[in-house]
Amino acid sequence: MSTLVVRRAPITRVLRSELRMVLRRPRTLIGLGLLALVPVLMGIGIAIATANGEEGGAEGLAALVIGNGMLLPIFALSIAMAMLLPLTGAMLAADALAGESAHGTLRGMLMAPVGRGRLLAVKAFGVASVTLIAVLLMALTGIISGVLLLGGDGMLTASGTSLPFLDALGRVLITALYVTLQVWALAAVALAVSAFTEHPLIVVVVSLGLVIVSGVLAAIPALDWLDPVLVTTSWDAVSEVVRDPIEWGPLVEGGLRALCYLVIGGSIAYSRMLTRDG
């Protein structure tokens, strides 16, 4: 009996199964559907406002998106970055560990056995993939509804230059990747919280609490020194994407900041997974 050796199910099989499961979860599907609708609704709203001649009053990207369809996905993503996408990431992370723990399915995976570290990796993969899918879906519906509803070939940048369609597509892709990375950072923290509890709602509340508290702290001038460590600090940097040439500095800094949060969230989640009772 001591001749037993370590055996594991092929990781790709487990990852595929995880992805299939997450994408079958009704909550995931509803969330994806609603997110996909956001750019469409924004496009319709802007189109109606433009038709009524209400051009004034808009600031920043909102002023630029009129008649500038390729900007719609970027505008929509930057708006969703404020709350909807973090909420999505937090929900996915909440379901991944806390929710499955409540259902007893996490125990089933541990008994299969899927090693604890691997299980965390599999769960993180599920969260990360669906986040990416959500963002890409928004980008796609944004491009389609932008081009159809707002028109414009190529993209008018904030710097006043016009980009051809393919370059504009590249900008949308950069936005999508940047936004995804930022949501991953928050989801990593949410996953760490998720590893500590059996109540998904706690995870969502704590994660969104973190976003809101970060926003409040960032708004207090006396606490400006805190800004570099806040998870939300680099979320605004999305707007750099619409400048020409792109100013990479803030984007790279935001990316590194997100990576730091991924390391923090990931290591705490892993640490808790090692000792968590199944």
Binding site: A9, R13, M21, R24, P26, G104, G108, M111, A112
Partner: peptide, 28 residues
């Protein structure tokens, strides 16, 4: 253990397929 833990939104067969995917001793 402690009552069966399964995904409520999957069918019985899909649930087993999922756990089967994690079983090291089962060939795909």
């Amino acid at each position: 253990v402690e009552g069966p833990g399964f995904y409520p939104f999957l069918s019985g067969r899909e649930n087993l397929l999922r756990f089967g995917a994690a079983e090291p001793l089962l060939a795909t």
